[in-house]
Nucleic acid binder design. Structure first.
Lengths: 211, 211
DNA sequence: ACGCCATCTAAGCGCTTGCTCAGCTTCGGG
DNA sequence: CCCGAAGCTGAGCAAGCGCTTAGATGGCGT
C-alpha cells in the first residue's frame, strides 16, 4: 500500500497520463541507478512505451529530471512551510516540521533520493532555480529556530549552523532508508523530532534563564 | 594549502606513482560529475596520460572506484575506532569521534563525496565488502553511545536509531560542504560535536536521575 | 463522411563510451 | 652491449547512448 500511495496523488498535477507514467518510471529508474546510468530506453520501457515516446512529452531526458526535481522540491518545501506557519509554540512547530519532513523522505524515499541527490545532473538554469527552492527550505527551518530562541524555548548558540544541520539530518534519511528495514517512517519521524528538540536545547520543561 | 594536503599522505599506500596520480584524478572527476558521468578519457587526461594508460594500473574503471572507496572507507573507519578506543569518558570520546569524523568529511570533501555517495556504482562483490566496512562504522559510534548509557553519562531511549542518526548527520557534511563557505572544517567539527552531545542527552554536568 | 491534430512506433543517425592491441620507449642486470 | 620486462601511446573496435524522422493509428469536431 505504501508503494501504491506513492503513485497516487503525488504527481496528480502532471498531465496527460502518459507524461505522468513516464515521470514515475523516471523516478524509479533514477532512484535505482542514478540519472547518468539510466537510459531513455529504460524509462520508456518501464512506462510501457517506445523510446521515442519520451520526446513527445519532454524535450530532453534532463527536462524529465527537472520536472521531477521541481515538483518534489515544492512538495518538500510545502511540508516545512505548513509546519512553520502552523499553530503552537516553537517546540511543537519544529517537532511537527521534522516529523513530517522526515516521514515524507522515508515514505517517498525513491522520489526523495532523486530530488535530493541527482540535482547535480540538472542544466545550469534549472539548477539555479532548484537551488533557490532549497534556500527557502533552509530558511523555513531557520525561521522556526529563531522563533524559539526569541521566546526562550530554545538555546542555540549558532542558529544558522544548527538549522543547516537539522535539514541535513532529515534529508539524509532518503539515502539510507529502505522499506524492508525494521523501522516505519512514523517511528523515524518521531525519533528524529525528539533528537532535533534536544539539538536546539529544548528540554521539554519551561526554559528558565541560561547562563 | 588545503588542496595540497589533500594529495599528500592520504594516498601514500597507493603505488606506483602513476597509479596514485590516476586515483587522485579519479577522485576529483567522480566528485565533480559522478562516476557514471565521468569518462576514462577525462580521468587519464587529468593525470596527464593517454586513455589506455589507465588499464595498465586498473583492470576497469569500476576497479578504480573500488580502490578509492576501499582506502577512503578504511581511513574514515580508523578515525572513529581511534576515538572509540581512546582515553577519557564516553562524552569526550563521542565528541572526539564526531569532531574528527566531521572534520575529515569537510577537509577531504571531494574524497568523502565519492566514498559516501558513489558506492552504488560498485560491482556486487566490491559493494558487499564496502557495506561490511560501513557496518563497522555504525558499530563504532554505537559502542561509544552504549558506553555512555551504561555509565549514565548519556540518556538515549533508542541507541541503535540515535547512532545511525549521528553517523548520518556526519556523513552528510560531505554533500553540502564547499571550501569557499564561511565555516572552516574545525568550526563545523566543534559545532557538530556539541549538537551530538545534546542528541545523546549529555548536559555537560553530572547526569543525575531522569524523569 | 472526412480531415486534422495529437499520440505513438520502427528504424536508424551521429556520436561517445569503456576497453584493446600492436608497437615504441626506457631502463636495470648480465 | 644487448635483452626482456614494464610503462605508455595512437589508433581504433564493438556497443550503447540521446535523440530524430517518416509514417501508422485513433478519436474528435464539423
Amino acid at each position: 500500500m505504501g508503494t501504491e500511495a506513492e503513485r497516487n496523488g503525488e504527481w496528480a498535477e502532471v498531465t496527460p497520463d502518459a507524461a505522468r507514467r513516464l515521470l514515475t518510471a523516471g523516478v524509479q529508474a533514477f532512484a535505482e541507478r542514478g540519472y547518468h546510468a539510466t537510459t531513455t530506453r529504460d524509462i520508456a520501457g518501464r512506462a510501457g512505451m517506445s523510446p521515442a515516446a519520451l520526446y513527445i512529452h519532454y524535450k530532453t531526458k534532463e527536462e524529465l529530471l527537472y520536472r521531477i526535481s521541481s515538483v518534489g522540491h515544492r512538495l518538500a518545501l510545502g511540508i516545512l512551510e505548513r509546519a512553520r506557519d502552523g499553530a503552537g509554540g516553537p517546540a511543537e512547530r519544529l517537532a511537527d516540521a521534522v516529523r513530517h519532513f522526515v516521514r515524507w523522505h522515508a515514505e517517498h524515499h525513491t522520489t526523495a533520493r532523486v530530488v535530493q541527490y541527482e540535482l547535480g545532473a540538472l542544466g545550469e538554469e534549472h539548477y539555479a532555480e532548484i537551488v533557490g527552492l532549497r534556500r527557502e527550505t533552509d530558511a523555513a527551518v531557520r525561521d522556526i529556530i529563531e522563533d524559539g530562541v526569541r521566546t526562550g524555548d530554545f538555546d542555540v548558540p549558532d542558529v544558522r549552523g544548527t538549522g543547516l544541520a537539522v535539514v541535513s539530518l532529515c534529508i539524509d534519511v532518503a539515502r539510507w532508508f529502505t522499506s524492508d528495514g525494521k523501522r516505519t517512517p512514523d517511528e523515524i519521524g518521531d525519533l528524529y523530532a525528539g533528537l532535533v528538540l534536544r539539538m536546539v536545547g529544548c528540554t521539554g520543561h519551561r526554559p528558565g534563564d541560561h547562563r
